[in-house]
Design a protein around this nucleic acid. Structure first.
Lengths: 361, 361
DNA sequence: GCTGGCACTCTCACTTTCCGAGTGCTAAAT
DNA sequence: ATTTAGCACTCGGAAAGTGAGAGTGCCAGC
């Protein structure tokens, strides 16, 4: 059954009002605020039907209505107005992004922080997991028992480690090893490389007193970490300002869940498509987030990788404003990091449908 | 005036009991729990005097006593028993530290995390600011318009950056630059190097199309960052479990204060000496921490740098246990990182003392 | 100087009361 | 057929009231 236009208008009014005030919304309020052309009694009838349809809930028999998760879902899908950013907000975002574009590695967390500051909710930033391979190895001889391992990954991040040895090596030995690794172990992902490295280590065990094993271990560790992606949360405590998280235990459950980046890595699995995604309360896979909502936007991080920024808040979240802000930030990031960035010669994996260049803005 | 031994014993009993229960402590409780040789009435008299001396407070006329900040201070300075760690705790710490010793850069945050987990309070980890110099530069040629800058700092951390150029360079050019930087710019702190680099950049402007400037900028940035030190907080939300932070606003004030690492950098200024330092409530310089206590331990991070780990909690903190744990962790870190710096760092770390037997310093 | 006793105080937890926002229903009006 | 006004009813939550208990201060006697 299709929902009448008037019901939609009423539902939208309830959600908007509830988002604003955090108080259950009564028929009278709606009759006055939203200028429906009818009286509160009529609205009561409609409300009653919306309730039995499952879009609204009553905290108790004689209170106003509150949107149900299903109500929020309908609101997000069909009713919500696509909100525009104020000029100042857009400028803030642009300024903050371009100021950071020099430091690509920090950009991800800074974007999360920005999202949090703009929305007032705890924000998360994550890079989606993806198996990467090493593109190049360098071993830098520092002194007779110190050298640095530098690994350049396919996604153009660089990892390094300083190694102190309990014995001496010669520069030539280091150089030889460097060449060896470059020749044999580039282009392999962690899964592929592990067995190869293990056998190589065994073969070389006698020759170089474990040098190979040190480098191999760091390589595997690096590839594993990069594959797992990263996750950051900022501004957890702003959750405490939301009335629905006045209960410290409830807040603590959510915050400590978020603080474990291990948990967060589960989120992006759900988010393949582009654009903004809203996960409302019970839709969350994680028990701990069942009465929170998550809004996420993904962006093209270049080199075929995608990143994700998002915020976590109560069901009564200002979805419209949050979505607009996240979308804007994510678009900005895509433009900064996205396909353009790749030097010629790297395969450009442009996920299409990216970046709404679009109709409503 | 000197405080009588019995008063001390009573004061200690009040603090211990209050730390345990978070409830105001009455005369009867003390008479029963601590085996004083006297009745509750006597204790009442003593309590009354301790109150007028400023060591105790009464929430209201007819409630038990609660330690005042001054009372905690006296307790920490003179009454507190130096607590021993259980063997399991000591082993946990040893295990966790040695497991991490490979990754020096992460060790600092991991130590903080460990402190937090062990104590149940939010934990902070920071490195004290100190000017460092670059020990060595390497430029790695990747392809005709990409190279990597690797900078090894005096304190043996390594920083790197991948640079994409909008034009081509030759490998020889990169190598020449590398030699140039190593010859001219090692051993200088940020302050010293900045003017030198600026003039060098100007001189080279024509020759290499800004290559020098890119490297110079990264160098300055790196030295500046390292000089500023770093600060991390973990486990903020565990504060919510403390009864005194049930008020979300209060908790939010403290947590959001802690979340800004900028603020944290102010703390270590107070902590020059070695060992454990306790800052009780109003002793905190920061308004926001006036009803929290901070316990910190510093460690020798090698290369003349010191690090700091600490926890933040309510006034009613278990100072004795917290101090013991922090001290133990800090000692472990000093041994791992400290002046010895044994490149043969794979040796076994046995931390003695502070654990089993009853020895004082 | 210590102790038992006693009157007094004050908080907290619990109950009771009461108000009003908001509902659902019905009957009249459009 | 839909909308509206009116009205009785419900129920949560604030406000006020109550009682018990923990703890104190003080005094008189040991």
């Amino acid at each position: 059954m299709e929902i009448s236009a008037r019901k939609k208008k009423i539902l939208a009014a309830v959600v908007d009002e509830y988002i604003r005030t955090a108080e259950p919304v009564g028929s009278k309020t709606i009759a006055e605020k939203a200028n429906m052309g009818c009286s509160s009694a009529t609205i009561r009838n409609e409300l009653s039907e919306l309730t039995s349809l499952g879009y609204l809930e009553q905290p108790h028999t004689s209170a106003g209505r509150v949107p149900s998760p299903q109500g929020y879902r309908f609101y997000v899908n069909e009713l919500m107005e696509r909100q525009k950013l104020s000029i100042e907000e857009a400028e803030t975002i642009n300024a903050r992004l371009s100021e950071k574009m020099e430091q690509l590695d920090r950009l991800m967390t800074d974007a999360g922080r920005l999202a949090g500051q703009l929305t007032g909710y705890p924000a998360l930033a994550l890079s989606t997991p993806r198996a990467v391979a090493a593109k190049r190895f360098d071993l830098l001889y520092v002194d007779s028992n110190t050298f640095i391992i530098v690994i350049l990954l396919e996604n153009n991040t660089v990892r390094n480690k300083l190694v102190h040895l309990p014995f001496s090596v010669e520069q030539g030995q280091i150089q030889k090893l460097s060449a060896l690794f470059n020749a044999g172990f580039t282009g392999l992902t962690e899964e592929e490389i592990t067995p190869v490295l293990i056998s190589a280590t065994e073969r070389a065990a006698r020759d170089n007193m474990g040098l190979t094993s040190i480098i191999a271990a760091f390589t595997i560790e690096t590839l594993t970490q990069s594959r797992a992606g990263e996750a950051f949360v900022t501004g957890e405590s702003s959750l405490l300002q939301q009335p629905e998280f006045r209960d410290p235990d409830k807040a603590h459950r959510v915050i400590s869940y978020l603080s474990d980046s291990h948990h967060l890595m589960g989120l992006p699995a759900v988010t393949e498509e582009n654009g903004v995604r809203v996960i409302i309360g019970p839709e969350n896979l994680a028990e701990e987030l069942r009465d929170s909502s998550v809004v996420m936007a993904s962006y093209d991080a270049g080199e075929g990788q995608r990143g994700l920024i998002g915020v976590v808040g109560p069901l009564r979240m200002d979805y419209s404003a949050v979505a607009a802000k996240l979308r804007y930030i994510a678009d900005g990031l895509s433009r900064l990091l996205g396909s353009g960035e790749a030097p010629a010669g790297f395969g450009k994996m442009i996920l299409k449908g990216d970046v709404s260049t679009d109709e409503h803005e």
